[in-house]
Nucleic acid binder design. Sequence first.
DNA 1: GATTAACATGAAATGAATTCATGAACGGGT
DNA 2: ACCCGTTCATGAATTCATTTCATGTTAATC
Lengths: 306, 306
Amino acid sequence: MQSLLELRHLKTLQALRDAGSLVRAAQLLNLTQSALSHQLKVLEDQYGTPLFERKSLPLRFTAPGERLLTLAGQVLPAVDAAERDISRQVQGVTGSLRIAVECHTCFDWLMPAMDIFRPRWPEVELDIVSGFHADPVGLIHQSRADLAIVSEYDASESVDFHPLFQYEIVAIVANDSPLASRSFVAAQDFADQTLISYPVPDEMLDIMRQVLTPAGIKPARRSTELTVAMLQLVASGRGIAALPLWAVQNYLERKYVSAVKINAQGLFGKLYATCSAETSQRPYLADFVSMTRESCFLTLPGITLL
Amino acid sequence: MQSLLELRHLKTLQALRDAGSLVRAAQLLNLTQSALSHQLKVLEDQYGTPLFERKSLPLRFTAPGERLLTLAGQVLPAVDAAERDISRQVQGVTGSLRIAVECHTCFDWLMPAMDIFRPRWPEVELDIVSGFHADPVGLIHQSRADLAIVSEYDASESVDFHPLFQYEIVAIVANDSPLASRSFVAAQDFADQTLISYPVPDEMLDIMRQVLTPAGIKPARRSTELTVAMLQLVASGRGIAALPLWAVQNYLERKYVSAVKINAQGLFGKLYATCSAETSQRPYLADFVSMTRESCFLTLPGITLL
DNA sequence: GATTAACATGAAATGAATTCATGAACGGGT
DNA sequence: ACCCGTTCATGAATTCATTTCATGTTAATC
């Protein structure tokens, strides 16, 4: 009758609470739903009590479940802290993490992620390489950045790619637009529209790169830096935009504008963190990547981890 | 590069510190020395640093090793506490643990063990059934005791046995006795001696039961309640005693008396905790047994866990 | 009533931890 | 100095636990 509780179980319980369901928790942990189900069953058998109510949404934990979550809350941060301390003892970690971004919306999740990172690695110089760069990988080679957030995986580059997440990009149209009631829009629907976008080159926009350019369609363009401004233009009938679903969810719920799927299968943007092989070794890099994935998964609605 | 640190590893590290060597730590954990060696190697590879110095005695930990020990010190008690809380939530634990002992020396380790137990299970009524009983198992059947400490394993009894530990029983003789220089003594050597013992029936003394009675030897007896008094009698040449090595270690180091092995293979006393099947289920019972084994192993010199 | 989403479950497969069987290194004793 | 006993390391085999796969069940939704 030995305790077979392990840190793994505590992590599962926390993920379950944070993610709200076994399926989502499993994504967070890079495991299958089945694995978690088995794991929890073992624990419940061991303690002779259920740990959470399966039916209810939101998920509710039983008293023993809550007790284990409390335990996880004391234990897991302590473990994290200890492992970071050891990293410091072994290789005096005093590096830098200068991040280059090529997409505007990235800031929405990058800032919170950086805020979590900073106190965890106080001695790492954390920075954003200002401006939007068409070739962020170049910045890494020139040592002007340590990490770049990019939307394409290119195995041929001599850098490491760390998958982050995937999100759906939807067409944003005025509520009274004829497109608003369509089940999806295709490339041709953009032909006679003004595409409202961020002020970046074509090849940095997923909608151009993945949909319009391949179809040979080059709509009029109008650009602005701010997402709200783009939505204002759309709402007032000046054109159509293509934005991440998570970035506009709030406005959709308030029916400020309408969203339509792009193509029958939908259009998806992917994000990777890329850095030199050397940077990949740094303990804080792995921490940054996994922490970012986690915090994005928990805060951005409708994303999928890669 | 996920953290593969688990509670198991923290337990190993603590056992290593407490036991002072891999071999002893392995006994404490019911594992082989090899298992621990592999476990630690994995950790050291993971962190890229040794965790302790192998050569030095007493064992020394490196800074990262110490850091993990600190972590273990915060984490493991918290885990213990959480699991006890859950036991209470699941089955309101409000039982009793009345312990019957048949051997005098047992008190030496039983008291400290009880002192550790009490704060861990405040709601369990902890007691010693006073007096020495020839048939402690009977007390269990009569519900006059919940747990008995016995020295023989008898599978035919309708009670559960929980092995505790094994210790060597040595013959204690005066320093100037001719027996003192022998490499061991046998049954015949007791024939013309006075056996100094606790005031209990023959069948409760290992030396009688296992050595003298089988050989048909029945020496004169003289008895006293106190171990020191027995040693005093031996030292002044009044006879010979047979006592657990761990109980007399102090006196041997001060050369107050001499110890001699009994028979070529040595004489070993074994101890088991026995209780009803029902009592075995109680969560605090398992805790008492494992805690007792551990505390005895760490404090009594020269014992082996069963 | 079909359809989707979430969880459970048994069997198979994977993978990790442990043991077994050694070998090397160290530290007394004689 | 040389054995002898002890401790730890190591590679291969084994055992054991965890995870996945494939599928079943249930509940909620349109």
